[in-house]
Design a protein around this nucleic acid. Sequence first.
DNA 1: CTGTTAGCGCATTCAC
DNA 2: GTGAATGCGCTAACAG
Lengths: 343, 343
Amino acid sequence: MSATIRDVAERAGVGLATVSRVVNNSPLVSPATRQRVLNVIAELRYTPHQAARSLSLGKTLTVTTIAPFFTRPSVVERLRGVEANLADSGYQLIVCNVETVERRDICLRDLPRKERSDGVLIISLAPHPEEVTALQQPGVAVVLIDTYVAGMTCVFIDDQQGGYIATRHLLDLGHERIAYISDPLTDPFNFTSSRDRYAGYRQALTDAGMPFCESYHRSGMHGRYEARRLATELLSLDRAPTAIFAASDTQALGVLEAAHDIHLRVPDDLSVIGYDDIEIAEYLGLTTIRQPLFETGARGVELLLERLGNLDTDPVSERMPVELVIRRTTAAPRKLSSDAERR
Amino acid sequence: MSATIRDVAERAGVGLATVSRVVNNSPLVSPATRQRVLNVIAELRYTPHQAARSLSLGKTLTVTTIAPFFTRPSVVERLRGVEANLADSGYQLIVCNVETVERRDICLRDLPRKERSDGVLIISLAPHPEEVTALQQPGVAVVLIDTYVAGMTCVFIDDQQGGYIATRHLLDLGHERIAYISDPLTDPFNFTSSRDRYAGYRQALTDAGMPFCESYHRSGMHGRYEARRLATELLSLDRAPTAIFAASDTQALGVLEAAHDIHLRVPDDLSVIGYDDIEIAEYLGLTTIRQPLFETGARGVELLLERLGNLDTDPVSERMPVELVIRRTTAAPRKLSSDAERR
DNA sequence: CTGTTAGCGCATTCAC
DNA sequence: GTGAATGCGCTAACAG
């Protein structure tokens, strides 16, 4: 059995409280006894028992992160931001991966409870209205990452702006047939990014006086294969698009594959722009919208830690900027170039 | 304040123990009272307090995973395997990311203690001999993933075999100048994979009666950029290699970049083989050695869960197989082709 | 400055 | 079947 605070106290010839004070760096201990206790602690390899500590403190000393689809590079990057800022806070990080809707609902309902965790970070999953009221119960601090919900503390991305910028970039290059490939706009997980980026896409089209063509928007399950399929459909349309905006870099890869399949050259025959700027994007020269992934995680933790201090602070929400990164998969459409030459 | 077991007991007009029995599915409760208690539990939204539970049980109900470099795709995939198998076990998953040697040492020393966690999974970090004896202290179950240490329970990859197969594949294609790019063979984290794969590489060369050329082995910090630099060095050698075996797919990407930089065509001018078979490998058509990443994590948890049951089982170790995946970055060397033509 | 005491919420002997 | 009592290891009042 490992040493308890009592063992240390006896061996050092002091009371329990003194040991506790030493462990918790209380200044109310004379240097002499402190040193003596410290020696015994080292000797016995004493470590405070986490559970006992939390029970006594009334805090779990734990932060839970609920995230969908671990594998998605964007989620990993956010998680890394979370971990980085939590490592030295004294809080342990509990992670919970959500890959089904059932799990999503269970996690959102059961995990944010003060008996389980002092704070909860929810990544990319927007709580439904009923869930929001449950989440606002006092006791647990909740911070939403990559999602905006009025009345809750969130660190989110201006995805509408991102969609706008992406589309605008294509428009500026002279494209007139711009398609958008994304996850389903409404899904049971309640992801919001595809939806917001879509709104930006539509807005940019409108602002440019460009008509929106229903058949230029395709959506399907997230992932490269599905995106490839959707892009193939798009590219075999009568008036095939000359540019495709994919709601994520992963999906943009699928688009590139589809183009390759039918021997279209990128960017000569087809422009492709992604979203996220994951690591491989640079390698592939993919034009994309960069969003601060790591930073959202890191900032989310900061806000959570603040709230952990005093729970009754007003919710704040912070919007993080996106940025267009132009690389080698976008260019002026061929038709336009020839038009230009003709003049 | 949230409801405690006492609140439930009072409201249901029963004793504390009865509520506890209901919560823990003890059969020693009459159906009638059970139902009554269940109703009150639902009504009060009662959830057992984790910390109190563990304190009383003498178990933390927690499993800790220590993993280096969250970002590495291989680590993420293993973690996913861990999470998948732990989700329904009733244990919470605490994750700890290690990005510096100091953290590595601290984590390995402080986390595997029964006061903190019932079980620990250590991914890709080989404990040093002193650390091993500490890890074998009773109380915590420890399972090593992607690492083999005699006397401990491990799920590991036959990396020497992997290195052998990779090199052998190149040899079979007719290559005679085969280089190897990897992490440093010995590093303070004590990663073993680069070392083992190197051993396999050397062995394959020897078995083929091929001399080993010191300058064909380059090592440097893990990552694409460094690998690109190393490959560039290699390719500007007088007798440049015709094939490069990279110790990871990520590094193989760097090699591909280096080749591209100097307009070498792959696989015509240079063959490249990676290791891991991460998702992007398929997209790029990278020939590689596939290792069961997800599975090692998943299997590691299974073994841990078993050990959690009875701690004094003998350590077991399981070796997982690797597999050559031939795609489009390896081919016979040009020189040989022309030799063949000449005949 | 330091020791003593009383819970924190729950599982678990024991009696009934 | 069920309830009352005990202790898990620690922190925070409190008294000295």
